[in-house]
Nucleic acid binder design. Structure first.
Length: 553
RNA sequence: GGGCCUGUAGCUCAGCUAGGUAGAGCAUCUGGCUUUUAACCAGGCGGUCGGGGGUUCGAUUCCCUCCAGGCCCGCCA
């Protein structure tokens, strides 16, 4: 029996679901399975935001794999107000607090939210994610939600009954879930509804106090005092969250949407929205309850939640510059319910894991246990951006990092490629496609990683002074070889290839083993028993520095 | 104070929803590699499965409890 990877299992659960959860009836046959992922655009969309999209995409692939017609929606929650100016955004944006992010000007014709959501959407391609993009602001204003809003307004008593289940104080008699945008000042947080009928509400723009994320004190937002009316059919406003969520599901026919754990607390939004979805709209709430994916945990960086307002974020479009996008998919698809603490130093290890999965997939690495093998192959399919036709050439990330420091792949691509080939013992001739892949997907990426996130001189740190115990450990032959090497470096100009030949010849002249010779070179220069291509290393460090070290022997 | 999730080798994880004397990769270590010495090959080290109870012939797997970590607990989305 082959164990089914969680997206496949979840996909089967979704397809096999029979009944409503609040209504005693059967779910009609579903023609198209709609998955929804959404992101609130409070600032720079970061890799933590991508987790929701990537996990839904895995499920999307699983359903497609079952031959089920499926749509994957991604929704920008851009009718939501800006509640805090995130780190990295000019402080003047304080003036826009309380306005829908879709209405805040950026540069050119872009709004604050389209600026960020466009960048986010463009970056989806790097991760192999294809989605249909939606925006709540557009949906409200284009009339896409008008029918849903009307249904809500016809069923206010029922909605109050549902919502009151999770409240201590019941909603007041004149309560209405519509939140208008102030026609005068453009804020949505400051509008207080004063009355309503079946076509709209009347409101006054009043001062509003709220807590900014991470702050104890209340922030006061000034209302402009304007009194006006907001018609539901104009869509210049939004429904309160719990109601909005349920209405979205019904409007778009959503079968599944995972969300962060805060939505799944008892009496939290998922449950209210679900009941609204079924009892008000008659659409089955998206596959709820315990499942392998939800509620999912967030990504933390050194123990802190990654969030736009804290500023400890990596933008989704920056990640591929220093790590393969498949790695991010891997991190999010493994153990999805667990909170992930991330560190840049773990990247080489994750890349090794990815490479291994690729080898297993192409049968280059044998896994005896059939179940495990199938599992790993499936995981590879789900994390790969585009599955290659045949097994690609692999360069371990740590080797790539070392090579990229000796020859900067951006400045001398041919030299870096050559060295990488020799370091990794690749004999076959590389095709142009191989070269491009190794250069762009590995060497340049590794170099960026080293420059930005890795310890200085990752792997090729030359030691200024040779420690006494290392000197003492050298045999007479080793010392002799190093002295000769030093002398010849000083008196002659060497090419890398020439130097390599000379080192091997030296081995025979002095009469020591390759191991002893190479070990002494590496121990003297970098304090390690092994190292990368001695000749290349010496050339990269420069003969002056090398001789400075070797003279100490 | 309450709720939910998580806790398996140094690291990342599998196994746990049909309970049967602990698994993988990476790292580390050892050996091999006479122009592939950070590649590659062979091998070793490494965990009383967070602690304690219980059910059972037998529990990492089921139940209870404690501990630790994460997240959440607003007429915010």
């Amino acid at each position: 029996m082959i164990k089914v990877y969680w997206p496949d299992k979840l996909a089967r659960d979704i397809v096999g679901r029979k009944k409503y959860n609040y209504l005693d009836k059967e779910i009609p046959k579903i023609k198209k399975f709609v998955l929804k992922s959404s992101t609130s655009i409070s600032g720079v969309p970061h890799i933590g935001n991508a987790s929701d999209v990537i996990r839904h995409d895995a499920l999307f692939r699983a359903l497609n794999g079952m031959g089920k017609p499926t749509r994957l929606l991604w929704v920008a929650e851009d009718m939501d107000a800006l509640r805090k100016v995130p780190a990295g955004i000019p402080p003047e944006f304080r003036n826009y607090l309380g306005m829908p992010v879709a209405d805040i000007p950026w540069v050119d014709d872009k709004s604050y939210s389209t600026h960020f959501s466009d960048l986010f959407i463009e970056s989806f391609e790097d991760y192999g994610v294809k989605v249909e993009c939606k925006s709540t602001a557009k949906a409200y204003r284009s009339g896409e939600f008008t029918k849903g809003i009307k249904t809500i307004m016809k069923n206010l008593d029922l909605i109050k009954e549902i919502w009151n289940k999770s409240r201590e104080t019941p909603l007041p008699a004149n309560w209405n879930p519509w939140k208008p945008v102030c026609e005068n000042c453009g804020k949505i947080m400051t509008t207080a509804v004063k009355g309503f009928d079946e076509s709209g509400v009347s409101y006054k723009c009043e001062d509003f106090k709220f807590k900014e994320y991470g702050k104890e004190a209340y922030t006061k937002l000034s209302g402009c005092g304007y009194e006006g009316e907001s018609k539901f059919s104009d869509g210049d406003g939004k429904l309160l969250w719990r109601v909005e969520w349920g209405m979205e599901w019904a409007t778009w026919g959503v079968c599944f949407e995972a969300a962060g754990k805060e939505h799944f607390m008892p009496s939290s939004s998922f449950w209210t929205a679900g009941e609204v979805c079924e009892r008000v709209f008659g659409w089955p709430e998206p596959h709820p309850s315990e499942n392998p994916l939800q509620p999912y945990g967030y990504m933390t960086v050194s123990g802190e939640k990654m969030s736009a307002s804290k500023g400890n974020v990596v933008a989704t479009w920056d990640w591929p510059k220093f790590a393969p996008p498949q790695i991010l998919r891997l991190i999010f698809l493994e153990n999805p319910r667990r909170t992930k603490d991330f560190s840049y130093l773990k990247i080489p290890q994750y890349v090794d894991e990815y490479d291994r999965l690729q080898r297993v997939y192409f049968g280059e690495e044998k896994i005896d246990n059939e179940r495990e093998r199938e599992n790993l192959k499936r995981l590879y399919e789900l994390i790969e951006v585009e599955i290659p036709e045949k097994m690609p050439v692999q360069i371990p990330f740590s080797s790539a990092a070392a090579v990229s420091q000796i020859y900067n792949p951006k400045e001398s691509p041919e030299k870096a490629l050559n060295l990488a080939r020799r370091v990794c013992g690749i004999r076959k001739k590389l095709s142009e496609a191989d070269k491009k892949m190794i250069l762009e997907k590995r060497l340049i990426v590794a170099r960026n990683w080293v420059e930005t996130y890795a310890p200085q001189n990752y792997g090729i740190a030359i030691q200024e002074r040779v420690p006494a115990e290392i000197k003492r450990s050298f045999s007479e032959k080793q010392k002799a070889a190093l002295r000769i090497l030093c002398q010849e470096l000083e008196t002659k100009e060497w090419s890398e290839a020439g130097l390599e030949n000379r080192i091997y010849a030296l081995r025979d002249e002095v009469g020591i083993s390759s191991k002893d010779l190479f070990q002494s070179i590496y121990l003297a220069l970098i304090g390690e028993k092994q190292g990368i291509k001695a000749a290349a290393l010496i050339c990269a460090i420069g003969k002056d520095k090398v001789c400075g070290v070797l003279k100490q022997i």
